[in-house]
């Protein structure tokens, strides 16, 4: 195996220092010499596949992390396990979209291991990224090309793509966070900061190897989700090829503020179809102020996919994505809260 240094941090500050010492080079965090590891459900796979070759792993899985309600809303520590958050009574009752997005992801075994911070940073399942025998992958090997463009791309993105990369963002939890206007708190070499979750991930553009706004050695410490009239009327609908343990072909995270049958405000995010966590603002603008019914739901769904660009095997995701969103909107409207 490729040798690497393994360090375990007891405090976030120590983790950041350990990562900084080991990672001086100018590289996006995913290529940094030092990598954080929590549950290890992504990075160990990628190391075994030789996709990532960190020289240092800093274990942040033992850092303290809690689930609390505060004045700002729900605060989820980054080292909280997916399972713990998915099964938390407050989350289930007041933020069902978060609980469902977590519960419908991965398997129970993985949810028991994987941390929330690691979850939002999970990397694409694009087969050409995960298999180093394909030389062309701009995300893995900048400038080498994209095998997916003329390869098998059924599971890949139709929104937010570029001619350099169409890898889809695979996560579910991130869709709930972006829909609910969550903030991310981080700790980095230059101290702590807070940024909108919507600003965390980047579209591939010309640099698909740069996936987030994080700096090397910057550690996510918590997510803060504001409470609002919409958080209880929220849900996550995930459509996939099998009923469990599978990534979304299309998914929708929905939170609605209703006034009778009228949508006072909506928050909509889409999974399985985009290169990053995807807030569907056009859909929100279309449905806000409207009576929620089949027609308006489909109108919002049309708007959401107006900018879609399809490839040889994934054109169906436009129609599937629309239907998923429409169904999710109608289901959310019918929720009893």
């Amino acid at each position: 195996m490729r040798p690497f240094l393994y360090e375990r941090a007891d405090q976030p500050e120590a983790a950041v220092i350990a990562a900084r010492i080991q990672g001086q080079q100018q590289a996006p965090p995913t290529a940094a010499a030092a990598q954080f590891i929590a549950g290890g459900t992504t990075i160990l796979d990628l190391m075994k596949l030789d996709v990532m070759q960190p020289q240092t792993l800093v274990n942040v899985g033992k850092l303290p992390g809690t689930i609390e309600m505060s004045d700002q809303g729900l605060r989820l520590g980054a080292s909280v396990k997916m399972a713990e958050a998915a099964e938390n009574e407050i989350v289930k009752r007041d933020f069902p979209v978060i609980a469902q997005a977590l519960q419908l992801a991965a398997s129970q075994q993985i949810r028991n291991m994987a941390s929330l911070g690691g979850n939002v940073l999970q990397r694409t399942r694009c087969p050409y990224f995960r298999d180093v025998s394909y030389s062309a992958c701009n995300k893995r090997n900048p400038g080498s090309g994209c095998s997916a463009l003329d390869g098998h791309n059924r599971n890949l993105a139709i929104l937010g793509t570029s001619d350099k990369c169409i890898a889809s963002y695979p996560g579910d939890f991130a869709q709930a966070l972006i829909a609910l206007d969550a903030q991310v708190e981080t700790l980095g070499p230059n101290g702590g900061r807070s940024l909108a979750f919507a600003d965390l991930h980047k579209e591939p553009g010309d640099t698909p190897n740069i996936e987030t706004q994080l700096q090397p050695g910057e550690l996510i410490s918590a997510f803060v989700v504001p409470t609002g009239a919409w958080t209880r009327r929220s849900l996550y609908l995930k459509i996939r090829d099998r009923e469990s343990y599978e990534f979304a072909l299309a998914s929708a995270a929905i939170a609605l503020d209703m006034d009778g049958q009228t949508v006072r405000g909506s928050r909509i995010a889409l999974g399985g179809v985009a290169t990053r966590p995807w807030r569907a603002r056009e859909a929100e603008e279309t449905i806000n102020g409207q009576t929620l019914n089949d027609e308006t739901a489909r109108g919002a769904a049309e708007a959401a996919f107006r900018g879609a660009k399809v490839y040889s095997h994934n054109a169906f995701k436009v129609e599937l994505g629309r239907r998923t969103l429409a169904r999710a909107l109608l289901d959310a409207g019918r929720m009893e809260i």
């Binding site: 398997s107 399942r125 087969p127 095998s147 003329d150 390869g151 098998h152 090829d241 099998r242 009923e243 469990s244 343990y245 599978e246």
Partner: peptide, 21 residues
Amino acid sequence: DEKRARYVNDNIAEYLIPVNA
């Protein structure tokens, strides 16, 4: 992969077999 004549989902995460659900 029709162009490269290579198997793409060559693992049991991506090659789907039914799960209990």
